[in-house]
Design a protein around this nucleic acid. Structure first.
Lengths: 164, 164
DNA sequence: TCAGTATTGTTGACCTGGACAACAATCGCC
DNA sequence: GGCGATTGTTGTCCAGGTCAACAATACTGA
């Protein structure tokens, strides 16, 4: 039984110049990926999130938490359903996310007197203070992103995607 | 103990016009998110991935698998380290991803005769056939994306991000 | 030569997020 | 007043990202 049980066995060695290459390989070809916007959007998004997370790590605010705080602050008393629809966060996920923010004393969920099912979301004073700090840090991140993309391209992308 | 053990208790009802609003709420304000490119990039990326996944579901190829097949096909015999660096996939993750593709008979990992640690990656004939099919479906997805963004904006975004 | 160091790939473990279903409470409508 | 729809919560599953440890191999410098 020469290891034939394992479906991921190594094949026999191959005498192929490509596999023997030792000199520094020229840049990897991306092939048809060059025509797929999703590839580039994903790379940009990964870079942005990593920088954002690193920048706001000291106050322990993730991108999703940041956008939540911003939108709650800008729309006092809105419901979770509305918030989720605005941010594209599924309601189960949003419930847990808000619990985390509430446990940290940043948001409060008041019972809406107009609809017993809804929670009217609000920032606590502490939430507003933290949000101000978060906005400062987030603008630092955005400055770094502008520097990386170039200001003109950054503006082009923002205006191009805003009304999407 | 009126429920005071639970740190996430509901507060007393609030008499606030905002919470009592019953008429259709005007569009949710995004506040400062309007100035953060990451917010828009993420929304676009989510849309793209959802459409891509749905389009290629019938052949069970994810975006990461697609880009892997494309790059392996375009760079015969490259190593996992090179592939991972090109696509921004961490090597632990890439190892498992490739195992999945190998188990499906789409890629093979030949021992590189130049370096005993490396695997020279290649598509199998079956992998090449599936990749052709995947490319067809992916271009359908891209057409849908172009229709949604508008061709001009799509081209603008691609050329703007390609050399990023 | 060879001992120490770096690289490559693999595996295990953990965590976050997304997706989906079930559920209770409440609302709206007829 | 009852029935379907909505809202929020919870459980569960799965995919991905991350990190650490490890074995095998390559490289480097004394």
């Amino acid at each position: 039984m020469s290891g034939s049980k394992n479906p991921r066995r190594r094949a026999v060695a191959l005498r192929n110049p490509a596999t023997a290459r030792r000199s520094p390989r020229p840049a990897i070809a991306l092939g048809v990926l060059n025509f797929h916007l999703g590839y580039f959007v994903r790379r940009l998004q990964v870079w942005i999130f990593q920088d954002f997370i690193r920048t706001l790590r000291r106050i322990d605010i993730s991108p999703a938490q940041f956008s939540t705080l911003v939108v709650v602050n800008a729309n006092g008393g809105l419901s979770q359903a509305e918030l989720g629809a605005a941010l594209g966060i599924e309601r189960a996920r949003l419930a847990r996310l808000l619990h985390g923010l509430q446990d940290r004393g940043l948001v409060e969920r008041l019972p809406s007197d107009a609809d017993g099912r809804r929670h009217a979301l609000r920032l606590t004073p502490r939430g507003r203070v933290l949000l101000a700090r978060a906005k400062t840090l987030a603008s630092l991140h955005e400055k770094r992103l502008m520097a990386k993309l170039g200001v003109d391209r950054h503006n082009l992308l923002i205006s191009s995607l805003r009304n999407f």
